[in-house]
């Protein structure tokens, strides 16, 4: 039991990060609904934030503030890096959601397979029209 606790659960923060990562990744891959995909993407990114923040933690260290009596403190740099990555993540989600709004306006749906269906329908209609036009011109060309 001891080795299990020591080797596996002492790094539980990484397990949480990996767990969240896989949930997010799986959601992005498996869902056809675009909003759900963005949610998955968010969870995926958040797991990386947690990974970074727990990397910066120093066992027994306090928050990185300048004050008397504090000698051991966590590394603040990963936190700062992740602040930037959070901003990037927010921008990505905002842009993704904005695109989804436009897609909904243009297609009337945000399900990937339905959008594919709409596109395919239009394509086949266009091909039919083109064929019909060509047939017509062919008939006109042939001398009666």
């Amino acid at each position: 039991m001891d080795w299990l606790l020591k080797d596996w659960f002492s790094h539980y923060n990484y397990w949480i990060a990996i767990f969240l990562m896989m949930i997010g990744f799986y959601t992005v891959i498996s869902r056809g609904n675009m909003v759900k995909q963005i949610v998955g993407l968010n969870i995926f990114q958040t797991s990386v934030f947690i990974l970074y923040i727990s990397l910066g933690n120093v066992a027994g260290g306090s928050a990185p503030i300048v004050r008397e009596g504090i000698t051991l403190f966590s590394n603040p740099l990963p936190h700062v890096l992740i602040l930037t990555a959070i901003v990037v993540g927010v921008a990505t989600s905002a842009l993704g959601l904005a695109l989804i709004v436009r897609i909904k306006e243009a297609y009337g749906t945000i399900e990937e397979d339905e959008i594919r269906e709409v596109d395919r329908m239009r394509e086949s209609v266009e091909i039919h029209i083109e064929d019909a036009l060509q047939d017509k011109t062919l008939h006109e060309d042939t001398p009666r």
């Binding site: 993704g96 695109l99 897609i103």
Partner: peptide, 12 residues
């Protein structure tokens, strides 16, 4: 409008 879907897929 297909540009929107293409951009979205690229975003993901």
């Amino acid at each position: 409008r297909r540009a929107l879907v293409a951009a979205y897929q690229y975003l993901v």
